[in-house]
Write a protein that binds this DNA or RNA. Structure first.
Lengths: 321, 321
DNA sequence: CTGAAAGCGCTTACAG
DNA sequence: CTGAAAGCGCTTACAG
C-alpha cells in the first residue's frame, strides 16, 4: 500500500508537506503541490480513509436511514434515491452507509452506533414522519441531517421535496387539457400524508379554476366492493388522478371490469409500474427520485458560497410521463 | 469520548490489558476481563471503529453491490435483502455500505475505492450475472464475496439462492392439487435467466408426473396482442405459473378481459404486489428475501466450527402465500 | 497474567 | 514555504 510517506521519500519532502499538498493547502507552493499530485498519481496513491477519519474525528460517510414501516412498493423509490445520492457522494469521496431494521429500537441503535462508533456526522432520512424518534434523537446530537419530504408544520430542518401542490394541479390539468376530461376524480388513501393533502389541494385548485365539480374518493386497502360502488355511483367520471400508481391501476381495472367498453384516462404518481402492467390510457408523474437523492447530498454537504445564505431545502421538479 | 485509556486509568491497568480484555483474549484473567467489561459498561465506552480498522488493516464493513441494470420492481426484493442482512451485521458489530451506480464504470470505481481506501474485505452482490466485470475484479482481489443467485455452470463461488427447480415444481403442483387445474401454463420472459430455466424445469417435472400436457409461453415486454392471441389459442388453460408476479398479473388481466366470467388461478413469484392489485385468485411464492440476506451474511462472516467444512452456499426455502 | 513500546496512516499546531 | 513532532484510538510482538 502506497502512503504519503512513500510520496514524501520519493520527492525528498516531509509527510506534513505532502499531506498539505494533497489537501491543496494554499501554504504549499503551486509547484510543490503539482509535483506531489503527479507523484501520487504515478505511484497509484490511495488515501486510507480509516486513518483520515481517525485524525479528522469524522467519517467521510453519509448514513442513510430507512423508515421502519413502509409499503413494499416504496422500495422502488428508495433505490432510485440511493442511486442519485451515491453518484454525488462518490464525486466527493464520500461513502454511503445504511441504517435499516424491523423495529424502531433496531434503527435507533444502528444510528447511535454510526454516530459514536463510526463517527458519522451526516445523515439522510428517506422519510419525514412527525414525532419520529430517530429524528428527535438526531436533533439532540451534533450531526447534520436532511429528510426526504418536508417536516410537518411547526417543525424546521433541512429537507428535499417535490412541490406537491403543483404536482396535484398539473396532474388534474393534464387530464383536463390533454384529454378533455370533464369529471376527473381524485383518489387518495386514508393516511392523509402531507403529500396527499398537498396534491389534493392542487387538484382542487385546478378543478375550481376549470369551473368543474371536485370529487374525492378515499380507497381502502382491500375490499373491491368499495371502489366498485363508487364507480357505479359516479357514471360521469372520465378521468382519475390517483395518489400513487397502485391506487390508479386498481381503479383503472375496477373501472374496466364494470365498463369494458368505456374509456378513461388515469394519472398516478411515482412512475413505478413496469411496462407489463399499463397501457396508453395510463400516465404517471415522475417525481425524480434520482434528483431528490442528488439534491439531498448537495444540501447536506455543500457549504454555501461566501455571503450566500445556506439553503434550508430544495424543491425537485416533476414530470408527467 | 471514552477510550480504552480512560478504562485503563480507572482500573490501574495498562491499555494493552484493557484492549485484550475487551477482545476477550484468553491470556487475560477472567476476573480482569470482567472488571474491564464492567467499567466499560459503566463509562459508556464505545469503540472507535476508525481506530480499530486502521490497526486491523480491515474495515468492519460489508460492501453491498447493486446490479447496474435491473427492473425497477426488483428494488422491492433488494430492500428486503438489505433488511435481512443488516440485522445480522449489527449483531456482529458490522456496518453495511452500498455500491450502486448507473454504469459499470461507476460501480467498479466505487468497489475499487471500497477495497483500497476503505479497506473493505467483504462483499455481497445482489445479483449473479455471467461475465460480470465486478465479479471478475473481486476474484482477483484479496477479498471474500457472496452472490445472491447461483453462478452459471462452470463457475464456482459462495452464493445464496432458492431451490428454483423445487419452487417451479411446488408452484405447478399447488395449482394442480389445491385448485384442480387441468391445464396450467408456464409463463416466462425472453431472458432465460438461470432461475427461469430452473423453475421451468420444476414445472415440467410436475406436469409430467401428473400426466398432463405442458404449455410454455414467453411473454413480451409490451404488446398486449401477443398474450391475447395466446390466451385465445389456448381456451383450455385454467391455471398460470408465472415467472414473476408482474407477468402473472398481466396475464390475469388479459385473461379476464377476454373471458370476464371464466375463473383462472394464477401463481407468481416474489410476493411483491401490494394488496390493492390482487384478489383471491392470485397467489405468490415468497422467496424470503430477508432470509437470503441473513444467510448471505452468515456465509460471508461466520467461520466454520473446528473440523467442519466451510459451506459453499446456502439454499433458502420458499413458501406459497 | 500484565505492561511498555512501536506502529497503523493520516492531520495540524508550533516553529522556523 | 517547509519540517519535526505530537496525537487520533486502537492492536500486538516482545519482554518479563
Amino acid at each position: 500500500m502506497v502512503t504519503i510517506r512513500d510520496i514524501a521519500k520519493r520527492l525528498g519532502l516531509s509527510v506534513s508537506t505532502v499531506s498539505r499538498a494533497l489537501n491543496d493547502n494554499k501554504r504549499i507552493s503551486i509547484k510543490t503541490r503539482r509535483n506531489v499530485h503527479q507523484m501520487a498519481e504515478k505511484l497509484g496513491y490511495q488515501p486510507n480513509y480509516n486513518a483520515k477519519n481517525l485524525t479528522n474525528r469524522e467519517a467521510n460517510t453519509v448514513g442513510v436511514v430507512f423508515p421502519v414501516n413502509n409499503r413494499v412498493v416504496d422500495n422502488i423509490f428508495y433505490v432510485g434515491i440511493l442511486r442519485g445520492m451515491n453518484a454525488q457522494l462518490n464525486q466527493r469521496n464520500y461513502v454511503l452507509s445504511i441504517a435499516i431494521g424491523d423495529s424502531t429500537e433496531q434503527v435507533i441503535d444502528n444510528v447511535k452506533s454510526m454516530i459514536t462508533r463510526a463517527q458519522i456526522k451526516h445523515f439522510i432520512l428517506l422519510y419525514s414522519h412527525q414525532n419520529d424518534p430517530v429524528i428527535e434523537m438526531l436533533q439532540n446530537e451534533d450531526v447534520d441531517f436532511v429528510t426526504i419530504g418536508k417536516p410537518a408544520a411547526g417543525q424546521d430542518w433541512l429537507y428535499v421535496d417535490n412541490d406537491n401542490v403543483k404536482a396535484g394541479f398539473d396532474g388534474a390539468n393534464f387530464l383536463i387539457n390533454e384529454f378533455h376530461a370533464q369529471n376527473p376524480v381524485f383518489v387518495q388513501t386514508h393516511n392523509d400524508w402531507p403529500f396527499e393533502i398537498d396534491r389534493r389541494k392542487g387538484y382542487l385548485d385546478a378543478i375550481n379554476q376549470a369551473g368543474k365539480q371536485p370529487i374525492v374518493f378515499s380507497i381502502p386497502d382491500a375490499d373491491d366492493a368499495v371502489p366498485d360502488q363508487f364507480i357505479k355511483d359516479h357514471p360521469q367520471m372520465d378521468g382519475i388522478v390517483a395518489i400513487d400508481d397502485y391506487s390508479g391501476l386498481k381503479m383503472y381495472h375496477r373501472f374496466k371490469m364494470i365498463y369494458p367498453d368505456k374509456d378513461i384516462e388515469v394519472l398516478g404518481y411515482n412512475n413505478s409500474l413496469p411496462a407489463e402492467l399499463t397501457d396508453t390510457h395510463f400516465h404517471s408523474v415522475d417525481i425524480h427520485p434520482g434528483e431528490m437523492g442528488k439534491s439531498a447530498v448537495q444540501l447536506l454537504l455543500d457549504k454555501p458560497e461566501d455571503g450566500e445564505a445556506a439553503n434550508r431545502h430544495i424543491i425537485v421538479g416533476h414530470q408527467i410521463v
